[in-house]
Amino acid sequence: MALALSVLDLVPVRSDQTTSDAVRASTQLARTADRLGYTRYWVAEHHNMPAVAATNPPVLIAMLAAATERIRVGSGGVMLPNHAPLVVAEQFGLLEAANPGRIDLGIGRAPGSDPVTSWALRHGGGGVDDEAVSRFPEYVENVMAMLSPDGVGLNLRGRQYPLHATPAATSVPEVWLLGSSDYSARLAAQLGLPYVFAHHFSGQGTAEALALYRGGFKPSEYAAAPRTFLTANVVVAETEEQAQRLLLPNLHSMAALRTGAPLTPQLLVEDAEASPLTPDQEAIADGMRRRAYVGTPDQVAAGLTELADQFDVDEVMVHPVAGALTGTPADQAPAREATLELLAAALL
C-alpha cells in the first residue's frame, strides 16, 4: 500500500522569533512540502498562546496557497463554535474560488483556547459550554449548505430569503470533521463526511473512534465511503540522538500546557536541555515521547507505515515538531524542513 503524507502546522513561535519570523518559517515549510509531493498542508486554530501563531486559519491558508502551486491547503481545523457559520462559509468559498480544487475545510468543536479567550471570541457570548457548542451539528450542516452553488433559503416572517456564501461557485472546498473523542466520529458517519481523529494529541481511543465512524457511515454526496487518515508527531534527523534532542522543546511546551504551568514561546534546544521538568511534567513528556515518531528516516518511515497498517489508512498527516538550535536564523525552521525532506526520501 502506497502511503501518502501530509503536514499539520501550528506555526510555532520560538523564543528567538517574532510572529513575522514564525509565519515566514511556516511559509517556507509549506513550499518544501509542496515541492516534495506531500498531499495536503493544514493549519490549526489556537488562541492566546505565546508559542502558537496559528490563530486565524483562513488568513494563513490564503497566504500559504498563494505561496505554493500544487498541495492542498486547509484547516486542521476551524473551531466552529467560535464563528458564525456564514462567515466560515464565505471565507472558504472565496479561498476555493481563488484556488479551485486545493482547499480543505477541517471543522472542529473544541474552543482552541482558554475560557476567557473563548468569551472574547464570541463577543461575550459565554464559555465552552454555550449554545454554539450544543448546536455544533446544526452549524456544520449550515456551513455545508451555504457553501453549495445553490446556497440556502432562509424562512423569515413567511418569506424565503436566498443566501449564498459566494455569488457564483463552481466548486466547493472538501469538508472534514475533526475530533479527539467519539462525538465527531458519530457525527461524521451520520453526515457522510470524511473524518480525522487527533491521534497525535492523545493517542487514546483511536481504534474505537475509527470503528464507530466506519461502522456507522452513511454514504452521501460528500463521500461515497468512509475516508480518514491519522495524525502523528514526528521528528526525523540523521541520527536518533539528534532527533531526540530536537524533540525536547515541544515536550517542554506540552508539559507546561498540561500541568497549568506558565506558557512561554517555544524554547531553543539548548535552553530546554538546561531546564529540568518537574516529576509530573516528566511523566507527561515520557508519554508523549513514546507516542511520537522520532529517529532516523528508516526508523520513522517504518513506524508510520506500521501505524497506517494498524489502522488501515493510506495517508498520515505528520506534525513536524523539531525544535531549533541556538544560532538558527529566526525566519527559518531547518529541522522541521529536514524532517519533511528526510521522510519524503524514505516514503514518497
Results as ranks from 00 to 15, higher is better:
D16Y: 03
A330F: 07
V140H: 09
V152N: 11
H46I: 06
S75V: 07
G77K: 05
V175M: 10
I103K: 01
G93S: 06
T18D: 04
G74L: 09
I61T: 03
L8N: 08
P262K: 02
E138Y: 05
Y213N: 13
R109M: 08
A335G: 02
D331W: 04
L64A: 00
H46N: 13
D129T: 14
S180Q: 11
V236A: 02
A198W: 05
A4R: 15
G124E: 05
L177F: 10
Q299C: 09
P249R: 00
G153H: 14
D129L: 14
L163K: 05
S75G: 07
A338W: 06
V294E: 03
Y139P: 00
A98N: 11
A132E: 12
L263I: 12
S20M: 05
L246N: 03
I284D: 09
T305M: 10
Q266Y: 04
A132C: 08
P219G: 12
A54K: 08
P320F: 00
A338Q: 15
S220W: 06
Q17H: 08
P167Y: 07
V269I: 04
A25P: 11
P219Y: 07
T27V: 12
Q91K: 02
L3S: 12
V133T: 14
L86Y: 13
L307D: 01
D150Y: 01
T328D: 02
E337D: 13
A67W: 04
N82P: 00
A272S: 13
L342T: 01
R258D: 11
Q160S: 13
M63C: 07
R14L: 10
G303T: 01
G287F: 06
L343I: 02
Y213V: 14
S75W: 02
T264E: 15
A261M: 02
L178E: 06
R102K: 10
D104G: 05
L94N: 07
L60K: 04
D331R: 09
R72Q: 11
T339A: 00
A344M: 11
K218Q: 14
P226F: 06
A110D: 14
